[in-house]
Simulated scan of single mutants.
Amino acid sequence: MQTAVRMGGYAAALALAFGAAWGVGAATRPPVAPPAPAADTSGVDMGDMHGPVVDGPSTAPATVDLTTGGLAATAGGYTLVPQATTFVPGQPGQVAFAVAGLDGRPVTAFDPAQMQLSVVRRDTAGFQQPAAVLGPDGVWRAPLTLPAPGIYRLYAGFTPSGGHRLVLGTDLFAPGDFAPVPFAPTRVAQVDGYQVRLDGDLVTGRSSQVFATVTRDGRAVTDLEPVGGSFGDLTVLRRSDLAQIPVDPGESPAPAPDDRSGPGIAFTTRVPTSGGYRVFLTFRHAGAPHIAEFTLTTREGS
């Protein structure tokens, strides 16, 4: 297998990461259990969602609102329609939903043919990215365990064939006593034996470059595997309302499956307002995904 190591673009990140002290402190993950394999609930009735399945967008308007960031369940002529929204805390289950067009029927043509799911509790604890599969009935299904009581936000990012990328969202519920987890500012995360540092500032109102550096046992990890068209997937959420901020992975062209890179991963984003943001980096190494969490506060641009 040929291995392509991409290092040049991350010189700035490495200089920051390995020249700086690691005294910022480690991020503390919330006291929630990891997701477990799901039970099959595919028999749940979709109600009005049953019927003929269309192969693409159904006369969606030309103007698409790309600023929703998962705050709305409907945008650009598409609606996120979940089968069920209540889960038993800690019990393996399945989230199932359709993306409906203007005619109310499930859309099945996506470009690329994949769905990017993210789930996080309203206090930004318990972030996870379950893998969804599209069924012949136009319903996306993914294993999901809501590890503790609370209200969770489900984000569904997709590009309908011939359309624009959208991120729609809806709430999921896990009944029970809820105690929010506080998160102090941190740029360093300890996860599954890896140390991850995030450098670069989120500057309000203009493009900001951030760099993640992954090490293990004090040594640089130089064989990170591709995740979602890059060597890492960065999710940025505004803490005030959980709006998901678009992120450019900066990989052009996208890495091939056998490409490897590291320890630096570069991203570009643009935060619209000042305040606090939660940042989640999903990276893959040795065949397994890992999620590092950070809490940042913006810096005002000049």
Rank of each mutant, 00 (worst) to 15 (best):
V139N: 03
F173I: 05
E251G: 06
Q209W: 00
A286K: 14
P52Q: 08
D111T: 15
L134G: 12
A11Q: 14
T159D: 05
A12R: 13
P57E: 04
M1H: 13
T85P: 05
V271P: 01
H50W: 10
V210Y: 00
A11P: 03
G25N: 04
A60W: 01
Q2T: 14
R299K: 15
Y194R: 09
S261V: 13
A148Q: 15
T108E: 06
A288F: 08
P246R: 14
P147F: 04
G301I: 04
A4S: 12
G43N: 08
Y78H: 10
V99S: 02
G262H: 04
H164G: 04
A266W: 01
G200R: 03
D258M: 15
A72D: 05
V107L: 07
T269H: 00
Q83V: 12
T170E: 02
G163N: 06
P249K: 03
G229F: 02
R187N: 09
E225S: 07
V53W: 03
A113H: 05
G93F: 00
A189S: 15
S42C: 04
G264C: 07
D192T: 15
R239F: 00
F110P: 04
T63F: 01
T297A: 10
P182W: 01
M1D: 10
A17P: 03
G193A: 12
P147I: 11
P289F: 00
L66N: 06
A72V: 06
L198P: 05
A148E: 12
V107S: 07
D111Q: 15
G19K: 09
R239Y: 00
T222M: 09
R284T: 14
T268R: 14
G126E: 12
P147W: 07
Y155R: 14
Q91F: 05
V5N: 09
R141H: 02
V227W: 09
Q244N: 13
T186P: 06
G228C: 09
T295K: 03
L80A: 08
Q129L: 02
R239G: 01
T86Q: 11
L296T: 03
V236T: 05
P52H: 11
L146G: 13
P136N: 10
T295M: 04
Y10V: 11
H290E: 00
D111A: 15
P92S: 12
